[in-house]
Design a protein around this nucleic acid. Structure first.
Lengths: 336, 336
DNA sequence: GCTGGCACTCGTCGTGCGGGAGTGCCAAGC
DNA sequence: GCTTGGCACTCCCGCACGACGAGTGCCAGC
C-alpha cells in the first residue's frame, strides 16, 4: 500500500523537478499534487526513497532531486508514452512533406526533432549496408580519368574519381558500364561487393580498378558514419553548470564518430531506447540522457535517430516525439 | 610625433587586451611593451584616444578596452598579416590533401579553419552559377520514372526524380541523354539553362519535362545556399556574458540563410574582409567580428569562407589563417 | 610636452549576520 | 503500525560592511 504511494511520490518529484528545475520539498509536493497525506508522511517516504538510491539531496535541508536510478525507475515503471495530439501529428507531416531528397529529409528531421523536444537532435543517415544498388554510372572526364557514380536505393549517391593510368576507349567504357551494372544493380550492398570483387579478380586492368573503387565506396566507413546534428542552441538552456558542462558536449557533438557510438545499434523500429546518465558508453555524455529509436523504410531499422539532453528532461514527451518523428520519416522513406 | 606614439599605444592595448581578456592599465602597458615613456604619459594618450572614440572604460578606475572603432583602426592601419610558418603551411596542406570529393573538402576546411583560429568556422559551398556542366545522366528507375543526375565541374552532384507520366523506351531515353549532354555539357550554368529551355520549347513531352527538371536543379536556390559550420564549441570560451550572448549565436549559426547573408558577397580572392561588431548586416552578430575571404578554382571567388568570433580576437593571426586556408582550398579545387 | 606625486573612484573579495526553506525526529493519535 | 503535528536543527542565500588595490585624473615642476 505505502509502496504504491512511494512510487507516486517519486513520480511527483520527477515531474516537479523537471518542470521547475529546483529541488522539491515535501510541502510544495503535497500542495501541487493531490496527495492526501501530510508533508511529514511524504518526508518519511522521501527518506526511504533516498535510502534505496532513487533520490538525493544537494545538501542537508534542501529538497530532493531524482538520481539516475530514480529516473530509470520513472521511465521503466511510471511512464506512459503520451500520444501526440492531432495538431502535432499534422505539424510533423507537413514539416516533413516536400523533402526532395535524402539530404533534405534528414535535415528537416533534425530540425523538427530539436524543435519538438527543445533538445539537441541527432539523426543518423540510413546505413548503406542494407540498401541496394540502383545504378552505377561511369563518366569519362578525360581519356584516362573517370568519375564513378554509385546510386543507392536509399537515395544516397556516392561518387569517386578514378585515375586509370592508361586511356580507355569509349566502347570499352560502355561495355564496362554494362558489366558493372549487371553485376551490381539490384543487389544488396554486401552481395554487390562480392560480385564486384569476383569481377575484379577475373579481369585485371581498368575494370578491376574501377570495381575496386566502387567496392571502396560501398564499404567506405565514412558513408556509414554520417550524422546530422541540430538544435545545439538548446544546450544554452542548461542554466547551471554551464561552461564546465557544455563545452565538452559541444565538442563531442562535432565528433561524428563519437556520436555514432552514442547512438549505438539501431534499436528495433517502434522501440524507444532511453539511456540515462552514465548508462551510456561515452564519458562526455555521462551527465546527459539519450533517447533514440531506429527508423527506416518498411520499419526496417536502417539507422537511428534521437535526442541528447539533460537527465532532467520530460521523458514521456520526448519519447513520444522521438517515436513519432521516426515513424513519419520511415513512412516517407517507404514512398521514395 | 605623439600621434605616432598614440597609435603605438592603441596597438599595444589591443594586443594586450586580446591576450589577457582584461582591461589594460597604463602601468602594465609600459611594462609589457618597451614604451620609453612613463605611465602618466600613456594615460594622457589614453584619455585622448578615448575622446576620439577608440577606447572605452568599463567603469571609472578600470583599464581601457578597445571600442569597435578602435579595432577598426587597428585592423586598417596597424596590422600586417603575419605569414604562416612553414610548419603551419605543411599542416594545412596535409590536412586538406586526400579529400575525395567536394563534401569532404568543405568538411575538412571547416574543421581546419576552426582549429587554426579557435573560432567558429563557416564555409560556403561553391556556388553553381559560375561552374560548368560536366555531365548529365539519366537512370530509368521504372519505365515512367527517371533519376536525373547532374554533375558539375565544381564536383557537385544534383539529383532529381522525374515522373514522366508515360513510359519511355530505352532507345528514346538514350537519345534524350545524348541530346541533353550535347546541349549542356561544357556550358556554364547560365548558358546550359538557356540551351535546355530552348530544347524544352522545341520538343514538348518527356524531353521538355526532363529538361525542365534539370533547369530547376541548376537554378535551385537551395544549391546556392549550402554552408558548413564547425567549431561551435569555441563559443564556450566566451567566458563573460555567456547565456545572454551565446544562445542567439548558436541559433543563428543553425540558420544557414542568415549565415549566407552574413558571409555576404564573396570578396575577391586574396582580399580578406573584416567586419567588426555592428558593421555587419545582422543583428545577432553585432557583438562579434566576421573575417571572410573568397575562394574558388583559379582564384575565382565562387564562394566565401571565414570565421565568426568575438570582436576581441587576434586579427592578424586570424586573417592570415583565413587567407591561407582559402588559398589552399582554391588550389585543391584547381586540381579537381 | 613629459613626468612624478597624490587624492580619488570604484569594483572586488572576504566576513558576518539574519531569514527562510527544508529536514529529521519524536510523541501523540487513528 | 501508519500517519500526523510540532519543534529544534542545519545550511544555503542574500545583503551589508569594510579593507584593499588597481587605475585614473589632475597638477605642479622640469
Amino acid at each position: 500500500m505505502q509502496e504504491e504511494r512511494r512510487l507516486a511520490v517519486l513520480r511527483a518529484i520527477v515531474e516537479d523537478y523537471v518542470s521547475t528545475e529546483e529541488p522539491v520539498g515535501s510541502k510544495a509536493l503535497v500542495e501541487r499534487h493531490g496527495l492526501n497525506v501530510s508533508p511529514a508522511t511524504v518526508r518519511n517516504d522521501m527518506a526511504a526513497l533516498e535510502d534505496e538510491g532513487y533520490l538525493t539531496q544537494p545538501h542537508t535541508s534542501a529538497g530532493r532531486v531524482p538520481t539516475d536510478k530514480g529516473y530509470r525507475l520513472f521511465v521503466d515503471r511510471l511512464t506512459t508514452v503520451k500520444p501526440m495530439t492531432g495538431a502535432e501529428k499534422r505539424a510533423i507531416s507537413s514539416f516533413l512533406d516536400g523533402a526532395v531528397d535524402l539530404d533534405e529529409i534528414v535535415t528537416r528531421s533534425v530540425r523538427l526533432l530539436s524543435q519538438l523536444t527543445r533538445q539537441v537532435a541527432v539523426v543518423q543517415y540510413p546505413t548503406l549496408s542494407r540498401s541496394t544498388v540502383r545504378h552505377v554510372e561511369l563518366v569519362a572526364l578525360a581519356p584516362d580519368r573517370l568519375l564513378a557514380v554509385l546510386i543507392l536505393s536509399s537515395g544516397r549517391v556516392e561518387q569517386r574519381l578514378v585515375e586509370l593510368g592508361v586511356p580507355i576507349a569509349d566502347d570499352d567504357l560502355a561495355r564496362l558500364r554494362t558489366r558493372l551494372n549487371l553485376s551490381a544493380t539490384g543487389e544488396v550492398i554486401a552481395d554487390a561487393v562480392t560480385a564486384l570483387r569476383d569481377l575484379a579478380e577475373a579481369e585485371p586492368g581498368p575494370s578491376a580498378l574501377v570495381a575496386g573503387v566502387l567496392v571502396d565506396a560501398m564499404s567506405d566507413h565514412r558513408s556509414d558514419s554520417r550524422v546530422a546534428v541540430g538544435g545545439a542552441a538548446n544546450l544554452a538552456r542548461y542554466g547551471d553548470s554551464f561552461d564546465s558542462a557544455v563545452r565538452p558536449l559541444l565538442e563531442a557533438l562535432e565528433e561524428h564518430v563519437v556520436l555514432l557510438k552514442l547512438m549505438g545499434e539501431a534499436s528495433a523500429a517502434g522501440t524507444v531506447t532511453v539511456r540515462i546518465g552514465a548508462e551510456g558508453p561515452i564519458e562526455q555524455f555521462s551527465s546527459t540522457s539519450v533517447v533514440t529509436t531506429g527508423y527506416g523504410p518498411h520499419d526496417d531499422a536502417l539507422a537511428t535517430l534521437g535526442i541528447v539532453g539533460p537527465t532532467r528532461m520530460d521523458y514521456p514527451g520526448t519519447m513520444a516525439a522521438v517515436r513519432a518523428v521516426a515513424r513519419y520519416v520511415s513512412r516517407i522513406l517507404d514512398e521514395a
